[in-house]
Design a protein around this nucleic acid. Structure first.
Lengths: 196, 196, 196, 196
DNA sequence: TATGAATGAGTCTTCATTCAT
DNA sequence: AATGAATGAAGACTCATTCAT
């Protein structure tokens, strides 16, 4: 946690709610302040500007998100099981926090370059996690070792991201976690070495 | 082609250029008008509002994009070869039009709900294309027929989309089309039935 | 006249009034727009920003101010008579336009460097006028020719400026033009060569 | 000295520095507090509000300024010599304290009416000094006795003020005190009775 | 006395859209 | 069909001041 001051946390949480409900552009700073129960100006004691709120939300929430996946993964022994666990956790966590899901899948996709770069910075840790699983799978002799890890990492992240986005846009009307098995089947099958 | 009047086309093309160069938020209607060589007000003779320009760009360009893939695919006989062709064409077309790539991958990811829904409408035709290939592969007995087509379609689109986005964000410094083979390998391998 | 468009002039005149009545800092752009009978945004078709209104007021009004003095001066033959004419006209013009006097003497004395530099740019023409009179007087053998023109020019401008400012701050309760004779007496006496 | 408490003085001195360096509008109370080494709130134990800091700076510094001139003047016997001494001291003191010069000549020229009135209050003592010299000169039969003292006082103050302002705006690149002689020559010459 | 975290009022500016010509 | 001058709504951010400790 970057900052444990109670107002900081209250603002972050208020921001997730307000942005999920109204969209980033309709989430006036004053609206977030009111929801957090602080004065408008107080926001600026903790955040550089409005965009910084968005970045901070992502950093805080994604930090936890990734941490939980890291922990969970270690409970499993093979790369393939770890991969399944990652997929399942990815879906589960977003399914459990629909507000956060809306923010990460829709509202955070702003086109401002600076914002995108900061988001990518946070995602690096997640991608590193995927890399580790891939390398492990290759060392185990289970995954094709000629595959370009950077590319496969993009494939996996792209798959998961698109599936979650779809679920959010379909207004979360079905069970996201249910999809984990099949998604894992396809990608695992795709990476694995098969005897022919 | 929705509209063949010369000014309509000039505005569409100007919009792609201007948005690619400046980003959506810095692409004022007046800037697009100037680039297109028309008066500001003229824009509103052809488009309902600013967002409609963006949607129309997507419709026009994506219409062609999908059409070309449709044509190309028919030259191939098996579902797997069609799948490869789709991937290759997806990458090739965006690689050949970097301005368009920037617009579709970055600038179009605005969060306004209405816009996103219209974009999805256009993409339906693309997804239908993927569906056809998948069904064909299942009928051929090559792809696992128990797979949820809607989910696999998301997997494929998500993969390709993420890979193109990465390429755009890395400022197109490497050859995107080169990636087609490996991407096809992974997804094809993932969908195929293997003897164990 | 830099710009003869009627709205430009209306805004300039409204600005002088509003600023004279309320002071620069209490003269919101929207207040000026309303007084000028235009929309807020229209201001920005003619002026870069709020400060630019102030600068433009000065340029427009001071342009006329100086022009009139230039014309008037030419009617006189000796440097000393020209000097008197300059003083009289300086006072007369400001006395005739009390709103302008308030703006130039009080509201324009903002401390922002950029603004001050632009104001000085306009004043150069006025100072050049004074220089010419001084040189002429020296050539006539009437004014001391060893005097530093740049310094004397400051003396004259400073005198006049302070006297007008005092009059404005005393709420213009006495006749400013009445002072011209005595002021001219002192400075003329000060510059002239006397037999001792 | 209005207030001899050490923090009061520290705040005054910090204010002169900060305002000279940053300009009045960029001199936030918090910046002055930090420079003075006190908490923001402490400022308000010694000053009613931000403007009161500025007024107090002027009162403190101008009090000394005038006092020194008063003392110096008494060393001289004739009005004319006193006048020279006043001019020289005026220039010398500001030349020796460039921060103060910037504050008095540029930053203090804010347009808020209340502030200007308080500044004038302080200046009264200075103007009285000038008045005394003028009266003395008239009694000596050296200066024209028909001159309006209030007007001449403005002439003298305006001259000196403009010359110092110019020097400050020219970034103090030349010697201000050097100008005293010539300035005195002009005004003294202007006030004196010459035989014709 | 001293602190400094919190407050919240206040405004310039942009730009999508309109409409008289 | 085309123009482009004019419109006006909308909101992030600053900073002087307060007050509980």
């Amino acid at each position: 946690m970057k900052n444990t001051k109670p107002k900081y946390k209250k603002i972050i949480d208020a921001a997730v709610e307000v942005i999920a409900e109204n969209g980033y552009h309709s989430s006036q700073v004053s609206k977030i302040a009111k929801r957090a129960g602080v004065a408008d100006g107080t926001i600026y004691l903790y955040f550089k500007n409005k965009e910084d709120i968005l970045v901070s939300v992502f950093q805080e929430k994604m930090g936890q998100f990734i941490e939980r996946i890291e922990n969970q993964i270690n409970d499993h022994e093979t790369a393939d099981k770890k991969l399944y666990s990652l997929i399942e956790m990815h879906f589960r966590q977003l399914a459990e926090d629909p507000h956060l899901a809306i923010v990460t899948q829709l509202e955070l996709r702003q086109s401002k370059k600076e914002l995108r770069l900061k988001i990518n910075e946070v995602l690096k840790r997640y991608l590193a996690l995927v890399d580790d699983i891939l390398k492990e799978g290759m060392e185990e002799g289970v995954f094709h070792s000629h595959l370009n890890i950077k590319l496969v990492r993009q494939i996996i992240f792209g798959m998961l991201d698109e599936i979650v986005t779809n679920w959010v846009m379909k207004e979360q009307r079905y069970d996201l976690v249910d999809q984990a098995k099949e998604v894992h089947f396809v990608i695992s099958n795709g990476l694995k070495i098969h005897q022919s």
